[in-house]
């Protein structure tokens, strides 16, 4: 009975709410992967989790987990309202404050989905396959990104529509550009409501 229900849901396609949750979940795992792969936090603070048919690493640091949870929840709400345009993971050196890497997730919202409540015809399985390939690419980028030599910290910037009321504990920020950067576009995936284009920009090595 339950299996049938599950099957039914999978065949049903995806709603706006489901899409927002799926994309927010992707961000959570994606950010965790980036933090692990780029060595922003020590590897022993991560634990293995099975997701999207992959073994992903998720932080066990309570402060970090709390922070990510906060951001993800807020993202979910904004994704549901279709007012978020971009999420950026900024990695910068603690010592000099210089921005070294920018992981950019451009979000294209289909605002018509707010009005029509009918679900879209794309199975969760297909979306998860797309997400899996994006996360694989994130993992693979380590091969060409320059080594982060100094101690680094990260920040999450969210580009939203101008008329957004900034909630409590949030504040406006600068875009934190990289002065001399090289960009690589990664794969994208779409839930047919939200399309997420992933790209990474990193500081060019001054010594070629």
């Amino acid at each position: 009975m339950a299996a049938q229900l599950q099957l039914g849901r999978e065949h049903q396609g995806i709603t706006l709410r489901g899409s927002a949750e799926l994309v927010a979940e992707f961000f959570s795992y994606g950010i965790n992967s980036i933090l692990y792969q780029r060595g922003i936090y020590p590897p022993e603070t991560f634990t293995r989790v099975q997701k999207y048919g992959l073994t992903l690493l998720v932080t066990t640091d309570p402060d970090l987990a709390n922070y990510l949870n906060n951001v993800t929840e807020q993202m979910k709400e904004w994704l549901y309202k279709c007012i978020v345009q971009r999420l950026v993971v900024v990695i910068s050196s603690i010592e000099s404050g210089e921005v070294l890497e920018r992981w950019q997730f451009d979000i294209e919202c289909d605002k018509t989905a707010k009005d029509d409540n009918g679900p879209r015809e794309k199975s969760q399985k297909a979306i998860q396959d797309e997400i899996r390939s994006v996360i694989r690419q994130i993992t693979a980028t380590v091969t060409f990104l320059p080594l982060l030599e100094s101690a680094c910290a990260f920040d999450l910037l969210i580009y939203t529509d101008k008329d957004l009321a900034v909630p409590e504990k949030w504040e406006e920020s600068g875009p934190q550009f990289i002065a001399n950067s090289e960009e690589v576009r990664l794969r994208s995936f779409t839930t047919t409501i939200h399309k997420v284009n992933t790209s990474v920009a990193y500081k060019k090595d001054s010594v070629p």
Partner: peptide, 12 residues
């Protein structure tokens, strides 16, 4: 059209 926001107590 766009505004950049971030969590005030971010790790950075």
């Amino acid at each position: 059209r766009t505004k950049v926001v971030h969590f005030s107590m971010n790790p950075m």
